[in-house]
C-alpha cells in the first residue's frame, strides 16, 4: 500500500507569501522520498481542503495541519472540509496541547486518513524555535547573555493558542540555555510592546510562534516593539530598543526545520518514514531560511 503526506494550511487571498513555507516544507519532505506522494491543501488557496484528498492516489494518507494550536481550524474546519467520517474532537482526548492522531475514512474518496495534531503543539516545535534563534543570530551556540521571547496572539481568540506559547517557553526555560525566557502576547499582558521591560539580558531573540509571515509578524510586531516606526521602512536585525539588542526572527514557521515536526507528527500516526528525520535535520541545518 502506498502512503501519502498531505500538509494542510490556511493560505491567503491577499498575501502571496502565506503559502510559501508550506510548499517549502513539502519540498523538503518530498526530497527524502519517505512518502509516495507529498501534497498540500489550503483553506484559502488551491487545492482547497475540500478537494486535496482526491488529488492523492495513495489509499493511506497522513494529514498534518500546519497550524499553531488546537482550535477552530483543527477541530472543526479541517475535518469537516476533508469529510472525515465520524470525526469527533473527543477522539483526540486532548487537554488543548496533546492532540496526537486519529485514523478515519474520508467520505468522498474512501481513503484511510490519519489525522494528526497541529505542528505547533508538538514537543519538537521547541527545537524549531531554538533553531530559529540560531538562524537569526547566525550563532549555533546562541544562549549565553541572551534572553528568548516566544510571541503569540494571546487568549482573546483561542485559549489554546496561549497554552502553546507557555508550553514552549517552559520547555526552552528547562533547557537552561538562554539566560531568560519569556512568553509575550500581542493582545494581552505581558505584551510584546514592552519587550525590553521583561529582560535584563543585553540581547533578546524574539520569535513569533506563527506559521507564516504576514500582517502580524511583518507589520504589527515590529512596530509594536519599536524596531521601526513604519514597517515599510524595514528594521535592523539586531535593532537597538531601550538599551537592548532585539534579534527579531519573524515567523518560526519559515524555519526549514519545521519539516521535521511535520514528519514526526506523521510518523507518530504510523507513517513509515525510514531515515527521513535524520535527512531533514541534516539538510535544514545551516540552510537559509525559507525565502519569503
Amino acid at each position: 500500500m502506498s502512503q501519502a503526506l498531505v500538509i494542510v494550511a490556511h493560505g491567503s487571498h491577499l498575501n502571496p507569501d502565506s503559502s510559501t513555507p508550506t510548499h517549502a516544507h513539502a519540498d523538503t519532505i518530498r526530497e527524502t522520498g519517505a512518502f509516495d506522494e507529498v501534497k498540500v491543501g489550503f483553506w484559502k488557496e488551491e487545492p482547497h481542503l475540500r478537494e486535496v484528498l482526491r488529488t492523492v492516489e495513495s489509499d493511506e494518507v497522513y494529514v498534518v495541519p500546519l497550524f499553531i494550536s488546537e482550535g477552530y481550524f483543527t477541530e472543526q474546519v479541517i475535518p469537516r472540509e476533508l469529510r472525515l467520517e465520524g470525526w469527533d474532537v473527543s477522539q483526540w482526548d486532548s487537554d488543548g496541547l496533546s492532540a496526537d492522531h486519529v485514523t478515519l475514512t474520508a467520505e468522498d474518496t474512501g481513503q484511510q486518513v490519519t489525522y494528526c495534531g497541529p505542528v505547533g503543539t508538538h514537543e519538537s516545535m521547541t527545537d524549531v524555535l531554538v533553531r530559529r534563534a540560531e538562524t537569526v543570530t547566525g550563532d549555533s551556540d546562541v544562549g549565553d547573555g541572551f534572553g528568548f521571547a516566544v510571541v503569540g496572539h494571546g487568549t482573546e481568540r483561542n485559549e489554546n493558542s496561549a497554552k502553546a506559547i507557555e508550553y514552549h517557553a517552559d520547555r526552552i526555560r528547562e533547557m537552561d540555555r538562554f539566560d531568560e525566557v519569556q512568553a509575550l502576547y500581542m493582545d494581552e499582558e505581558p505584551e510584546v510592546d514592552d519587550v525590553a521591560d521583561y529582560f535584563e539580558s543585553p540581547d533578546i531573540v524574539v520569535v513569533p510562534l506563527f506559521i507564516a509571515d504576514g500582517f502580524h509578524t511583518q507589520e504589527d510586531i515590529p512596530e509594536d516593539m519599536g524596531l521601526t516606526d513604519d514597517y515599510r521602512k524595514g528594521y535592523d536585525v539586531p535593532a537597538d530598543v531601550d538599551g537592548h539588542r532585539i534579534w527579531y526572527a519573524g515567523a518560526v514557521g519559515t524555519e526549514g526545520l519545521m519539516a521535521d515536526v511535520i514528519l514526526e507528527r506523521a510518523a507518530e500516526g504510523g507513517a513509515d518514514i525510514g531515515d527521513a528525520l535524520e535527512l531533514v535535520r541534516e539538510r535544514t541545518r545551516g540552510q537559509q531560511t525559507v525565502e519569503v
Binding site: H10, L14, S18, W43, Y72, T74, R157, N158, S161, F215
Partner: peptide, 12 residues
C-alpha cells in the same frame, strides 16, 4: 476586517 479574515478567520 480584511486582516482578521486573512490571518485567523475568527479563531486560531
Amino acid at each position: 476586517d480584511g486582516h482578521d479574515e486573512e490571518e485567523h478567520d475568527g479563531d486560531d
